[in-house]
Each structure stands twice: as structure tokens, then as C-alpha cells.
Computed example of a mutant assay.
Amino acid sequence: MEYINMETWPRKEHYAYFHSMDYPMFNISMNLDATNFLRFVKEHKLSFYYAMGFAAAQAANQIPEFRCRIRGEQVVLHERVHPSFTDLDKDTGLFKYVQVDLTEDIFSFSEKAVQKSAAQTFFMDVNEEARDDLLYITCVPWVSFTQVTHPIALGGDDSIPRIAWGKYFASGEKILLPFSIQANHALMDGFHAGKYVEQLQSFLDSL
């Protein structure tokens, strides 16, 4: 992790402008092509959710802006960020926050996520909640949404990106996945979100 030099940072003016706003978040939603990815997870008997969580975090780590976080008057750049995802308890209909450090491959991560989620019986780990080297990930598998927003803490320092996807659906010969990115505009723009989507789609196609 390193601290950004705010005086020489090329984004200094953009940061100051958006950081002064009451609600500096922006949201972009689109459909990803999940045709190849769905085939892959079925062939390897992986959880679509955990495998997609790996893919989303893997792509985010390729874009420095997705690894920046606001800490008071400073901005830090993490070497690596990790997924923190919601997981549903089917008996109660309530979810829990499960944090899993990213591994080097989709198979070991999926296995680790299955094990940690099964073992966790509490809503959230307060120690993990204090971390900011995370990506908040969730899924709404019942709805093929066109837009989604997430709760944030007002004040400008909430800078962890929120990533969500919905129910995939067929469109011709393709399987499309509704996908959403919510991020703090002080740290990134639509340009960076676009680079992220390109990186993620490339990963999904390459499996």
C-alpha cells in the first residue's frame, strides 16, 4: 500500500471537485456476455456466484483506480483488493457479509469461498468491516435489472466500489448478464469503469 502525493497527483483537481459533493458516487450498468463463462463454470462444476466474484475482483486489480481508497485527508493505493460478498441464508432469507482474500486462480478461490461461507454463522466480522482493501460484491439472481444502487455513508470518504449482477438471460445465441458498477467519482471516471468492463469481459471470454 502507498499514500498518494496529493500535490503532484494528476487527479488532484478532479478529486477536490467531486470529494466536496454530498453524494460523489456514480453508477454504470450494462449487460456482459456470459456465454463462455457460463459454459466454463458448468463444465467445472463451479458456483457461478463465487467464480464471478473472482472474475470481478481479478479485473479490478488490473485497474489502479479500483484500488484507490479515501482515508480522511489522504488517498491510498492498495497493491491488491479482495472481494467481500453477500451470501444468502435460504432458511432465514437474510444475508451475511463474507470476505475472502483473492487467490491466484478461480478454482482455489471458489473452494475457499464455499468453505468460508459455510463456516460463517454471523452477519459480519467487525474487524473485516474496518478494512478498505475490499470490493463490495452482491448479486440479485431473481431480477434481470437495468439499474441498481447501493447504500453508502455520506460525507465523501466511502470509496469502496460496489459491484453487482443480476439474473442472466438468453438473447439470441448469447447469455447476457446484467452488471453494475458503483464507484466514488473523486477516484475514478467513466473512462476507468469502461477499462474495467473491457478487462472483465476479456477474462470471461478467455476461460
Results as ranks from 00 to 15, higher is better:
A119H: 10
I63H: 12
Y50H: 14
Q182K: 09
D125L: 06
W9Q: 05
I152G: 00
L46T: 09
Q120H: 10
E2F: 13
P161V: 06
R131A: 10
P141M: 11
E111Y: 06
I70N: 04
L187G: 02
M30Y: 03
K195M: 15
D33F: 02
M6Y: 08
D87A: 13
K195S: 14
F109P: 03
Y168Q: 08
K167R: 14
F191G: 05
I137L: 15
A51W: 06
F54I: 07
P141C: 10
K45C: 03
M25F: 14
P178V: 04
S117H: 01
G194E: 09
H82S: 11
H82R: 08
Q58E: 14
V100T: 08
I175T: 14
V75K: 08
T146I: 01
D33L: 00
I181P: 00
L154W: 06
G93M: 02
A55T: 05
N5G: 05
Y49S: 07
A60E: 13
I160G: 00
Q201D: 01
E129K: 14
Q182W: 00
M25G: 08
M124F: 15
G53F: 07
D157Y: 01
Q99C: 13
W142M: 08
G190N: 09
A170T: 12
S47K: 09
M188R: 07
G190P: 05
G155S: 10
L154E: 09
G190V: 09
A183N: 03
F145I: 02
S159W: 01
L135D: 08
F109S: 06
Y15H: 09
G93L: 03
T8V: 10
L154T: 08
A183E: 01
G194I: 07
A16H: 12
I63T: 12
N61P: 13
C68W: 08
G53N: 15
L38Y: 11
Y168G: 04
Y23C: 13
W9T: 06
C68T: 08
V100P: 04
D89V: 02
T138W: 03
Y97C: 04
P178L: 05
S180I: 01
A130W: 07
K167I: 04
K12V: 02
C68F: 12
S84K: 12
Y136D: 06
I175K: 14
E173L: 05
M21G: 03
M21C: 07
